[in-house]
Design a protein around this nucleic acid. Sequence first.
DNA 1: TAAGGTTAGTTGTCGCAACAACAAACTTCG
DNA 2: CGAAGTTTGTTGTTGCGACAACTAACCTTA
Lengths: 165, 165
Amino acid sequence: METNWLTKDELAAWVRLYTVVELLPNVLDSQLRRDADLTSFEYYVLAMLSEAPDRTLRMTALAARTSATLPRLSHVVKRLEARGLMERFPCPEDRRATNARITDDGWRKILEAAPGHVANVRSHVIDALTPEQLGQLRGIADALLGKLDPDAAMAPLYRRHDVTA
Amino acid sequence: METNWLTKDELAAWVRLYTVVELLPNVLDSQLRRDADLTSFEYYVLAMLSEAPDRTLRMTALAARTSATLPRLSHVVKRLEARGLMERFPCPEDRRATNARITDDGWRKILEAAPGHVANVRSHVIDALTPEQLGQLRGIADALLGKLDPDAAMAPLYRRHDVTA
DNA sequence: TAAGGTTAGTTGTCGCAACAACAAACTTCG
DNA sequence: CGAAGTTTGTTGTTGCGACAACTAACCTTA
């Protein structure tokens, strides 16, 4: 099997993407850590709940929306529950299942954290790009997600605000 | 301070980028783990060394090229050294400094791991994009790196193959 | 040449993620 | 009905990354 090495242009694009993927999580995490004592994963767990009907989601659904495995989510939710930011209760319809709900404290926490997080995203990502590049980025990311997430397991996250027309 | 929330288009692009950033490391790591018993970070450490003159770099230079902090690199190198894939020796010019060099075993390891890694990158990233999108991606990533890496600390990595003209 | 400050690197501790093993509840089908 | 298999979620262990504290060496400048 002959290796199909990357061309110069492919390598240039790839290495830059790789570097972005390496640096971006740090930028997000350190701001949220500092200003709200949340990891970016915890932030998105709370954010997904805050958007859900009744501020409630089943663990499996929440795991899908945050690209987490169930064990990982379980640990994180336990910590957030200990901090009073969310709560769990058995699902009435399916006694195997657990519902996760954001508490009022969690709601306040996310409201208070959101502006700083958005400002951070804006200054590091959005403002760096022209409107044209923003559209290109959406197309590129969609193409990549087709390969990275072939079952569209995370589609509820990244397609949640699409127009249905 | 009024929050400047994201527009619908900005949010769409951002959420997709975020999802890619969340999923991509897993795709890279699991292939390298499985096929070569290396994390993607370890792979790039060895790869940077294999490209360096005399297959050697000072720890600080290696840290810059891999976006690692010095403590992190130190731990990782200790493990790679224990596995015989690289070695450290004092720098003659500056007795504070340590040189890191890839061993013959490490060289063989990276040669053996590269084809699978490249094939993985190709199938999950490169092949998902049109040539036009590949060029756009490079421009977008460059713009982002201007914000994420303002001091261009990682430039030796992502600019290493640029044409000098 | 000696003191203050900076740079290079290592080590120790803590927290989180991955993985595997497990328990409990649902579902299917003979 | 009941046994096999699947889905849902939790827990325990292991390993890596972040951060802080530390040592050692270099570089000023008085």
